[in-house]
Design a protein around this nucleic acid. Structure first.
Length: 477
DNA sequence: AAAAAAT
């Protein structure tokens, strides 16, 4: 739209595109030497992926070193904010942070549309931009972040509050349904909320739009594309000032939403990835062929022991399945938590917090938690149901990618296991694999010991904090 | 189908 310029690769050595995901390295013996978990620094996040940078200003050169931040220190941010970044264990900007931060922080502010793989530090990037622009002397909403779920909104708020902990007087608030605050004004510098609630609060004048200068949509493709969410986000934007900085972030931007994204954030600087480059190398993608639908539950039971090695998420298609599966697991004597939009807000808060703390290790959930949720102890993701579109038949590659992205956070390794039980689910998984040009590895059900051993190794490596860079994990010999 | 509103 705004730029017809030829996309230019970023100022990184042009690596060969990672077409082969079927690497044949061996899972090294995890060195449980207490080297500790990787920090959140970018040094562990060398993804090989090439970010395409398209600048709204056609005169500007994307390879200009000014548009690449090799350190947080070189950015013009306050000592208090820098202290918060260090406190969070961020040492070096990740690839997306390196590219996005200089462009986000320019004055006057530019819009941005940015794509980066799951678990590479998108939240920190837009949070830093927000905090560096907040005027603490004005106690009124100045930045608004919208997310597709209550849980994600709370998580983002936590990151912003953590990063801004040394900014004296900073106030942040969650704009999510809260019966105890009915009718009260939301006078905080930064608000993070869900679209419907924010829209309602703006209408009721509980949120003043007057000083809002930044609007961020996290999981932007989902926010703009999904029926309901899209209208709500558009309505919210229409109630804000016209000249605000609009920032869209996601791991995925399917072709059908790009045009709308460009209208929502016009003249944006755009950072994109080819969809072949979206899969995270550290996530070992497996599938298991199950003969009959009825055997799915029995198969799940076989994995329970592995699931409790660290933390695991089981994704199902419907709220009802989530609840039924939990009941059956409990009947088998297993401890499992369950979360879906069918629960009340306070129960949702309680359960996700139990899962974060590790008190609940196995969580059954719907797509409500498919996107954005960052629990670094998650080593295993199980797709009990293959993700499909609304019709229940067509494969949903984006949701698959977001689901498996709940593991393998910040360069760690993880396992993603998808259940295939009939021709339809087999076709769907194949469509997903070819969409991302990824190979999925079959689990050999005849050699359970080998399966257990292989997954065990990955989990142990993950728990030891081994990053993909340190250790290339593999499954098939 | 799920999510998203105190509609």
């Amino acid at each position: 739209m705004s730029s017809s310029e030829t996309p230019v690769e970023g100022a990184v050595p042009a690596e060969t595109a990672p077409t082969k995901i079927v690497a044949a390295a061996e899972v090294g013996d995890a060195q449980l030497d207490g080297s500790g978990p990787p920090g959140n620094g970018g040094e562990l996040l060398e993804t090989e992926a090439n970010v395409e940078v398209k600048l709204a200003d056609l005169q500007a050169d994307p390879n200009n070193p000014l548009f690449s931040a090799k350190s947080f220190e070189e950015l013009k941010i306050s000592p208090e904010l820098l202290k918060g970044i260090h406190q969070m264990n961020f040492r070096t900007p990740s690839k997306i942070q390196e590219k996005a931060l200089p462009l986000l922080l320019l004055d006057p502010p530019n819009n941005m549309i940015a794509q980066s793989q799951s678990g590479t530090g998108k939240t920190a990037a837009f949070s830093l931009n927000i905090l560096s622009r907040v005027d603490l002397n004005v106690v009124a909403p100045q930045a608004l972040v919208l997310a597709p779920s209550r849980e994600l909104a709370r998580q983002i708020l936590g990151v912003i509050a953590h990063m801004g902990q040394f900014m004296t007087g900073l106030k942040t608030m969650a704009a999510i349904p809260d019966p105890t605050r009915r009718g009260q004004r939301y006078d905080a510098h930064v608000l993070v909320g869900t679209p419907g609630t924010v829209m309602d609060m703006l209408r009721r004048r509980m949120i003043s739009p007057k000083d809002i200068r930044i609007l961020v949509l996290d999981e932007a493709d989902n926010m703009l594309d999904q029926q309901g969410l899209g209208e709500q986000c558009t309505k919210v934007k229409s109630m804000l000032n016209k000249d605000i900085q609009t920032v869209l972030f996601s791991a995925t931007f399917p072709p059908n939403v790009i045009e709308y994204a460009n209208m929502f954030a016009p003249k944006a600087n755009v950072l994109t990835l080819a969809h072949e480059e979206l899969t995270i190398e550290g996530i070992k993608q497996l599938y298991i062929d199950i003969d009959r639908d009825n055997d799915k539950f029995a198969t799940l039971l076989k994995f329970y022991g592995l699931m409790t090695q660290a933390s695991s998420i089981i994704f199902v298609r419907t709220r009802r399945t989530a609840e039924e599966l939990q009941q059956r697991m409990i009947q088998e004597g297993h401890k499992v938590a369950q979360l879906s939009g069918a629960l009340e807000g306070p129960d949702r808060d309680r359960i996700i917090d139990l899962f974060r703390s590790g008190e609940a290790k196995v969580l059954i959930t719907t797509n409500v938690l498919a996107r954005g949720i960052d629990v670094q102890s998650v080593t295993m993701v199980i797709n009990y149901d293959v993700p499909t579109m609304a019709d229940g038949r067509t494969a949903d590659p984006e949701t698959y990618l977001h689901r498996i992205g709940r593991t393998g956070r910040f360069g760690r390794v993880g396992v993603a296991l998808t259940f295939v039980h009939d021709k339809a689910s087999w076709t769907q998984l194949n469509a997903i694999a070819s969409y991302f040009k990824t190979d999925l590895h079959p689990i050999d059900t005849n050699d359970w010991d080998a399966v257990e051993d292989m997954i065990q190794k990955i989990i142990r490596s993950s728990r030891a904090g081994k990053s993909t860079k340190e250790m290339t994990a593999e499954i098939t010999g």
